[in-house]
Amino acid sequence: MIRLDCPHCGPRDQTEFNYGGDGRIERPGDDASLTAWNDFVYTRDNPRGPHVELWQHTAGCRQWIKVARDTLTHEIIAVGTMGDDIEAKIADPDRGGVEA
């Protein structure tokens, strides 16, 4: 079972969280094209490897968090708050958030 190091609560079991989908998706503005809206609602990448995701700590602090997870190995590469730069955390060789 995956364990996520919630930036607010500390390491917790995955059963405390709800998965919230691709964390790199941006909601388009009101003047965006139909294609942009269609992609936002319906189109998702299905990567084999690192994937930035949203999870909500539903049975904990109720906060939505960003999680970089390897879809192949389930390794949790990095965890951050919504305000954190998760891409920088992934790139950081001394990255945190990985719980042994």
């Binding site: 709800n18 919230g20 949203l54 909500q56 539903t58 109720r62 906060q63 939505w64 919504m82």
Partner: peptide
């Protein structure tokens, strides 16, 4: 959960 998503994300 959805409202929290709107408010936080």
């Amino acid at each position: 959960g959805l409202l929290e998503y709107y408010a936080q994300v």
